[in-house]
Design a protein around this nucleic acid. Structure first.
Length: 510
RNA sequence: GGCCUGUUCGUCUAGGGGUUAGGACGCAUCCCUUUCACGGAUGAAACACGGGUUCGAUUCCCGUACAGGCUACCA
């Protein structure tokens, strides 16, 4: 049991787009599995038919693929020995386990209607109960197979009366388990209620399906969000009731992702309000048609996104922050996951993207940028675009900034930085630029060093300090006051075009 | 309300009975670049509070406060 094969799962329900917190949960599962040479399974928990959202499952699969954290077993990633991996397709498997629990005295049939349950809650509240629930005490006053005569139960079942199966939580017992991240957690069963395990629609609830599937799929570690911590004791009890204690997975409950400002967990609303995506890829709600932005569409690199996410609640113990997936795998451990929730920081996310942008080769960047250029009708040799990318990559956080940062690589400026012109352009400027243009046209090798030498020589000849005209030159050829190394830029754009741009500027400002 | 979990710079975090409490993002100043960015340097900035335990607690224990999660025939 101690040396059992590591098998973990990510088990979302397809009720909407996958939130970045969910992506992080998937990531930690993936890292853990890879680290230990184990399996990572994607299981779709669609036991609630009323909350099914078309497209959500496909969205989850596509998101994981984009992030590069692919399960090696499960829905959308190839069937393994435990197929199917969609709980709706496993429906027929659960009833027998619920019945097994009834036979062993750990569960019972309950026939109460929604109205009767509501009535019970009201009654208990009126009587001053702090937490009105269906439990060891209150179940005695309800309609279930513990209170009804045996033949009435049989009659009701035979008649097809709607029923649920509830867990019979024992009285006053301490349930304890050791969470890898949080240590020992102890809960008394008197705080727990008789949770529904099997619904009247013939589907299991999360609790039953989750435990049964984890058992059947031989899951060794359950790594999930902190919101599951309160129900973990129920799951432990379930393993015990089934007699599966010796193969019960180890638990690790991850801290939550919190909103950047104020308090509370990160929600879709925060993204809208503060202007950042909370989803890995774009999602369109099938009903409202409302679109939620995604990191992919916003121009984030998947590895930058994943790197940022990995460090939100985990750190490798050294000061390294930029890590490839491979490095994360080798460094990862659940013991180094922090206990407290982490506020998401959109600014740092941009920084991560910048780091990855700078690490990319100009060729890779060009490849990504190309469609945008083509859409703009730009036709340039690939080597030229590569060079533009090389010059621009130090200046940007995102590829989509390239165009506004460097469109002058493709077309002459149409506007000029007025502040620079106003400050620097004087009666000596026009003659200087005329002689500079002439000197440029005489150059045989139009290279950065030759251009620089030529520029300095012209300054000397005209008795002008380089500082007086350097930025003017930049504005003349690019229209803007800042940018990449000026002489490299000029060399790249090319002699003829540069000379023409200089003459245009002279006529404009004189 | 009840139960569970948590609390180190504004944020992500390292650390851990004796430290100048370290790093990163962001911010500020300076250097580099006659630009912008990058890079470099410097700076402001934290152990929630109160009791214990101890020679000594930010670190261990207990309370309090605050925060979050859960409290469905949702997951």
């Amino acid at each position: 049991m101690e040396n059992r094969r590591v098998r973990v799962r990510f088990a979302p329900s397809p009720t909407g787009p996958l939130h970045m917190g969910g992506v992080r949960t998937a990531l930690y599962n993936y890292l853990f599995a890879q680290k230990h040479g184990g399996d990572f399974i994607l299981r779709i928990e669609d036991t609630d038919q009323t909350r099914f959202v078309p497209g959500a499952e496909q969205y989850i699969i596509e998101s994981l693929k984009w992030c590069g954290i692919e399960p090696n077993e499960g829905v959308g990633f190839g069937d393994g020995p435990h197929a199917p991996y969609r709980q709706s397709e496993r429906k027929h498997m659960y009833r027998q386990y619920a019945e097994q629990l009834i036979d062993s005295g750990n569960a019972y049939y309950a026939f109460d209607t929604a109205e009767e349950l509501e009535e019970m809650r009201k009654r208990l509240e009126a009587a001053g109960s702090k937490s009105p629930s269906y439990n060891a005490i209150t179940r005695q006053n309800m309609k279930n197979s513990l209170t009804l005569p045996e033949d009435e139960v049989k009659k009701r079942l035979a008649a097809g009366d709607p029923y649920v199966i509830r867990m019979k939580i024992p009285r006053n017992e301490e349930i304890r388990f050791e969470d890898i991240i949080r240590g020992w957690v102890v809960v008394n069963t008197s705080e727990m209620d008789d949770k529904v395990l099997f619904k009247s629609d013939g589907m299991p609830t999360y609790h039953l399906a989750n435990v049964v599937d984890d058992y059947l799929m031989q899951i060794s570690h359950v790594i999930r969000g902190e919101e599951w911590l309160p129900s973990a004791p129920l799951h432990v009890l379930l393993y015990r009731s089934f007699g599966w204690e010796n193969v019960m997975p180890k638990f690790a409950h991850l801290p939550l992702l919190l909103k950047p400002d104020g308090n509370g967990k990160l929600s879709k609303r925060d993204g809208d309000r503060l202007g950042f995506p909370v989803f890995p890829i774009e999602w369109q709600d099938p009903n409202s048609k409302e679109i939620s932005s995604g990191y992919r569409e916003k121009g984030y690199f998947p590895d930058a996104f994943i790197n940022m996410l990995a460090l939100l609640g985990w750190n490798p113990g050294n000061n390294q922050e930029i890590m490839s997936l491979e490095e994360m795998i080798s460094l990862f451990s659940l013991e180094r996951v922090s206990k407290s929730g982490a506020k998401f920081d959109p600014e740092k996310t941009k920084w991560f993207n910048q780091q990855y942008l700078r690490k990319r080769s100009p060729e890779e960047l060009a490849e990504i940028w190309l469609p945008e250029l083509e859409a703009k009708g730009i036709k340039k040799e690939r080597t030229y675009i590569n060079e533009v990318c090389r010059l621009l990559q130090e200046k940007a956080h995102f590829i989509h900034e390239f165009w506004s940062l460097g469109k002058y690589f493709f077309e002459a400026p149409t506007s000029y930085d007025e502040d620079v012109i106003k400050k620097r352009w004087n009666e000596k400027s026009a003659p200087f630029f005329v002689s500079l243009a002439q000197a440029f046209s005489a150059l045989k090798d139009f290279t950065a060093t030759e251009i620089e030498n030529c520029f300095k020589a012209t300054c000397d000849k005209q008795g002008i300090k380089t500082g007086e005209v350097m930025q003017l030159l930049r504005v003349c050829v690019t229209g803007v006051g800042g940018g990449p190394a000026i002489f490299e830029l000029i060399a790249l754009i090319g002699k003829e075009e540069i000379i023409s741009r200089i003459y245009t500027a002279i006529s404009k400002f004189s």
